[in-house]
Every structure is written in structure tokens, then in C-alpha cells.
Amino acid sequence: MTIATAKLSNPAVRALVAAINAGDREAFLGLLTPDATMSDDGSDRDVQEWIDKEIFSSHGHIEVRSESDGGLALVANYRNETWGEMRTAWRFTVTDGGKISRFETGQA
């Protein structure tokens, strides 16, 4: 079963998932702190390069299957034109101001 984006608990995570699925790079970046960091399968990556390659130039799409930790941890089916579809885990760190300062993803 998929959780509709509008039903995700955390507002910042909900907006980020919506930005990914809309292909809206500007909205995505607007949700991050200026010094946001990320990792993929345990390795830190350059945020700008990673999102261009894995999300926006390859038409990434995320279907959330479950959430935990107040909406800061997701398990989702993620697909893009490079890798196809895979089950992924996502974890977010959200500041008091509602911006995402770090996200981690990898295969679930």
C-alpha cells in the first residue's frame, strides 16, 4: 500500500516528496538549508550533483510505502530512468525552522 504524499506526517518531508514527484528542482532546493548534506548507501555525496543525476535529469519518482519517527524516516519505492525501480529507505534531519539539513538514502 502506498501513502499519499498529502498524508505524510512531516511538512518538510511531505513538501520534498512532492517536489521530487513534480520534477521541481527549485522547490526541492528551497526546502534545504544552505549547508545541507546527504548520503547515498552510506557514502556522503555532493547534494547538487546527486539530485541532478539521481532525481531531476533521470525523472525520479518516489512512492512512500511506510513512515516512522514522526515522518522523518520513510521506506519507499523509488524509480528513475537510470536505475529503474528499487525499494529505498530515507531518513531526514529537519531544523527547528522546518528546513531539511540532511537526508540519507539507500537501498532498503
Rank of each mutant, 00 (worst) to 15 (best):
Val47Phe: 11
Lys53Ala: 13
Val94Gly: 01
Thr37Asp: 07
Ala36Phe: 09
Gly98Cys: 12
Asp46Glu: 15
Ala19Asp: 06
Ala12Cys: 12
Ser68Cys: 05
Gly84His: 04
Asp52Glu: 15
Glu81Cys: 05
Arg102Asp: 12
Asp46Tyr: 10
Asp35Thr: 09
Gln48Arg: 14
Asp40Pro: 01
Val13Thr: 09
Ile62Gly: 01
Arg45Met: 08
Ala36Ser: 09
Ala4Tyr: 04
Lys53Asn: 10
Gly106Leu: 08
Ala108Arg: 12
Gly30Phe: 08
Arg91Pro: 06
Ser57Val: 09
Leu32Glu: 00
Val13Cys: 08
Phe56Gln: 07
Lys99Leu: 12
Ser101Val: 04
Ala6Gln: 09
Gln107Leu: 15
Gly42Arg: 02
Asp44Ser: 13
Ile100Tyr: 09
Val17Met: 00
Arg102Leu: 08
Gly106Ile: 09
Val17Leu: 01
His61Gln: 12
Thr82Phe: 11
Val75Glu: 14
Ser43Met: 13
Asp46Thr: 14
Ala6Ile: 05
His59Asp: 13
Arg14Gly: 03
Ile3His: 02
Ile55His: 02
Arg25Ala: 13
Met1Val: 14
Thr82Val: 10
Asp35Val: 03
Glu104Gly: 11
Gly23Gln: 02
Ser68Tyr: 09
Ser101Arg: 10
Arg45Leu: 06
Ile55Tyr: 07
Val64Asn: 01
Glu85Arg: 13
Thr33Phe: 00
Met38Ser: 14
Arg65Gln: 14
Ser58Tyr: 06
Arg65Pro: 01
Leu31Lys: 04
Ala73Gln: 05
Ser66Phe: 11
Gly71Asn: 03
Ser9Arg: 04
Asp69Phe: 07
Phe56Lys: 07
His59Ile: 05
Leu32Val: 01
Trp50Asp: 04
Ile100Ser: 03
Glu63Arg: 12
Gly71Asp: 08
Ser39Ile: 07
Thr95Met: 05
Ser101Cys: 11
Lys53Leu: 13
Arg65Ala: 09
Trp83Gln: 06
Pro34Lys: 08
Leu29Tyr: 15
Val94Leu: 04
Asp69Lys: 13
Gly30Asp: 02
Arg45His: 06
His61Glu: 13
Asn77Leu: 12
Glu49Asn: 13
Asn77Gly: 08
Ala89Glu: 05
Gly98Asp: 07
Val64Gln: 00
Ala4Glu: 13
Thr82Gln: 11
Leu8Lys: 02
Trp90Phe: 13
Ala15Thr: 06
Tyr78Leu: 03
Leu29Gly: 08
Thr105Ala: 11
Glu49Trp: 15
Leu31Ser: 01
Asp44Tyr: 07
Lys7Gly: 07
Val17Glu: 02
Trp50Ala: 08
Ala73Arg: 06
Lys99Cys: 03
Thr2Ile: 14
Asp41Ile: 08
Lys7Thr: 14
Gly42Val: 04
Ala27Ile: 03
Gly71Pro: 09
Thr2Lys: 14
Ser39Arg: 11
Ser101Glu: 10
Glu49Arg: 13
Met1Lys: 15
Asp46Trp: 11
Ala4Lys: 14
Ala19Ser: 11
Glu104Ser: 15
Asn21Tyr: 06
Asp40His: 10
Ile20Val: 12
Trp90Ile: 06
Val47Gln: 03
Asp52Phe: 12
